[in-house]
Design a protein around this nucleic acid. Structure first.
Lengths: 335, 335
DNA sequence: TTGTAGGCGTTATCAC
DNA sequence: GTGATAACGCCTACAA
């Protein structure tokens, strides 16, 4: 059906070995024959069968992707767009391994191995309920996004969560806010922990005290943002500003503020984290800490490629800068 | 490294052929040996190498995905989530073929063939600048989403664009609107054409005349929605309602209305199409025609699977129902 | 019912 | 500089 290396060899009047050598950049082949072979390759639109290639132990040029949070993650598209750039230039294809629901004994690692996957990107923010031991022990180069796994051949990449949050707090302090609260994500998630660190650092830098009651826990979603904000509002000395762990929880917080008969930013200033598209469309538009997911996507493939190519390379811990995007949800302190 | 069929055969004390037969559901194998083989398969966590499998002409269980609009498409995530359900139950993996930018002679079809891809899903709304001839002629089972290609082994799936738009017009007519305008997408796109058809059908059903000047062209984006709405507002007898070809263009239209000193829905009612997440967050929240992208994603894989399994099957033309989601952007006609 | 052996398309190791 | 040929892991006639 599709042309194979033998067809090309026959057409060019050489052996398959020669064609193979030309294709793999061996220098031990005559310039003229090389020229002729390449011409036939182009003419016949020949592309080596990747299954055969990976079978003989050569590279499969395949990177697997695993989503701990399902496809529904708001950043997925941006990350993928960033990945695409690097995939193109490095020549990888990206495979999404749909785990077979009917198989109780399903092993993601075995699935990767049977597919000859060269590396894996894991993406999501759930730490607790996933067991990555098998993956880490498998020695398959792995890059986690937003999960601080750093062991064996597994590294990670994430935004500078701490600095980003600290900058948000400083910005509010600069607007004379002195009662700044923090709406966290799941306490044990890597990103939430570091954002909370940044919150404390920001308070300290501004000479503000850390108050336990000003920290409310959510889980990144709009719903828990609403509930958590409600608790903050019930405080006798209620905060004049709130830094949220995600844009969606900020949206929930704004709704709670609105429902309490207060307004943003006159009564309370709100800052989100992420800069998802929705942030621009809520009213007032949300001031937020932008994560550069395009860069994170691109770098994740580049770092993974390094890991694949160099077996001895220590796994990376990459941090990508954030940017404060000022819109309309913050104003000077009032009260 | 990873266990192969020979290891399993040795462990179970049988030949590789027997193991293979067990794995492939041959009935010509003794119940006891089968039992024992399966036990070792499970114990050793054996999974046949898919490269070797597809090399011997068996199935690769791989479906390719091709995006004409890049990853940035707003529905991408939902479609993928729908696909995932079917991929799981059918046992396919999904591969994203990153086209190699440095290769001028790049052929998507050859890439698919070299990867032994069994079928392809094409997704996007650009018709004109893409050349699908090679793909259609390649005889690779293909399923287009939102593109009415129907030829050879290529079929398509899409929302019921016509009925959805017609329902939107009827809804407005029911609110006593008599000057209902239409903000189209790219005129030559499949979905826009059918939505415009539905617009006319809706007018006819309501006994309203079709007026050329009430149709403004955009390209689904917010920017062109803003511009097109501006033109409609400049009309001497300006419309009291507008049906838009997408939610993003509806957002643009609402901004134009606002900037003209008018308000939604008091002065002008607005209906979108898609029901993307943003529709819930603009103010007023957008009444819109929801597309069931989850179902479209799931069905696209199911239909593709049918096409792959049955070489004689005529390619499908599948239409998925829409649903009118009533929110706050429409009110009774006023004037 | 089970085992042997040839072949899928490619690369790597030798000879020549 | 070039060409046989043995792998890679698996499946499928065919033989036993």
């Amino acid at each position: 059906m599709a042309t194979n290396i033998r067809d090309v060899a026959k057409a060019a009047g050489v052996s398959v070995a020669t064609v193979s050598k030309v294709l793999n950049g061996y220098t031990t082949v005559n310039e003229n024959t090389k020229e002729r072979v390449l011409q036939f390759v182009k003419e016949m639109q020949f592309r080596p069968n990747s299954a055969a290639r990976s079978l003989v132990g050569r590279r499969s040029m395949t990177i697997g992707i695993f989503l701990t949070t399902g496809l529904a993650h708001p950043f997925f598209t941006q990350i993928l767009a960033g990945m695409e750039q690097a995939l193109k230039s490095k020549g990888y294809d990206l495979i999404y391994l749909a785990q077979l629901s009917w198989n109780r004994e399903y092993s993601f690692v075995r699935h990767c191995q049977s597919r000859n996957v060269e590396g894996v990107v894991v993406f999501g923010f759930q730490h607790e309920d996933m067991n990555f031991d098998e993956l880490v022990e498998s020695d398959i180069p792995t890059l986690f996004i937003d999960l601080d796994v750093h062991e064996g051949r597994a590294g990670y990449i994430s935004s500078d969560n701490q600095a980003g949050t600290q900058q948000a707090v400083s910005y509010l302090a600069g607007l004379n806010h002195r009662r700044i609260s923090f709406l966290s994500g799941n306490k044990d998630s890597y990103v939430s922990r570091h954002r909370q660190k940044g919150y404390r650092a920001g308070l300290t830098a501004a000479g503000l005290p850390y108050r336990e009651e000003y920290v409310a826990e959510g889980d990144f979603t709009r719903e828990t943002g609403y509930v958590a904000m409600g608790k903050l509002l019930a405080l006798t000395e209620r905060p004049t500003a709130v830094v949220c762990c995600s844009d969606m929880s900020a949206v929930g917080a704004m709704e709670a503020i609105h429902d309490a008969g207060l307004s943003v930013p006159e009564d309370i200033s709100v800052i989100g984290f992420d800069d998802i598209e929705i942030a621009r469309y809520v009213s007032p538009a949300l001031t937020t800490v932008r994560q550069d997911m395009i860069t994170i996507g691109r770098r994740s493939i580049e770092l993974l490629d390094d890991l694949i190519l160099d077996k001895k390379l220590p796994p990376p811990e990459a941090i990508v800068p954030t940017e404060l995007i000022v819109r309309g949800s913050c104003g000077p302190a009032n009260g």
